[in-house]
Amino acid sequence: MIDFAFLLDTLLKLLSALPTTLTLFFSSLSLGLLLSFAIVGMRVSRCPLLSYPARCYIMIFRGTPLIIQMYLIYYGLGQFPVVRDSFAWVVLRSPYGCAVVSLALCTAGYTAEIIRGGLLSIPYGQIEAGQAIGMSRLALLRRIIAPVTLRQVLPAYSTEAILMLKATALASLITVWDVTGIAQQIIQRTYRTMEVFACAAFIYLVLNYIIVRAMRWLEHRLTPHLRERPVHTPTKAKLDAGSNPKSLRSSL
């Protein structure tokens, strides 16, 4: 009943598009992260001239679906000769460039909000304590704000990374040959919708599983103080504490 030869063939064809999907993912995620630092810096600034544009940016890119942003950047902007004559056309000319730009712009808005959420979660007392012992602004950022924010932000950011990987599927709508694009091409030839989509889904699942695992490992490493303390086995607790003096200090 299940045509394994067809499934294997489909899987191999889809895997040939994996490099496109992965480079799309990594380039747009890292560009988006860089951009988000700038945006969040502006957003938390006390100067309204800086914070207001950042607010607008976040509102626009979080407030509209990526699919419409992508169509707007690809087909919408391409309509205007002004855009076609500008330096941006080097990037916007290719579907791949447009996909990276729209994915990065979109994720930057989301990431900025995630980082801001992390900043807000820092207990006021910790910042006060830092100021009280005479830390400079930079030291405050490096020693207190950044590490606490990083911990707080990780779960949400891992969600965002996964959303991004899934969002790369939309690039197929603007003629990029990624995994979903190839899947649709195979369906156009064979009309075997369920089998091909299931194969594609499987590939995305494996990729996301890897991301989830990596992020969870990082989260675990960074939050030793949040782990449940072993209650019933004091000897083991002592052992743990002995082998890891840092965690002992933080739990005291």
Binding site: Y75, Q79, R93, S94, P95, L173, T175, Q185
Partner: peptide, 18 residues
Amino acid sequence: IREYKKSDEHVLDLQAGR
């Protein structure tokens, strides 16, 4: 070769010079 979902989209890209 680039494949489009709808025919009007490749006309659009033809004008755009893509």
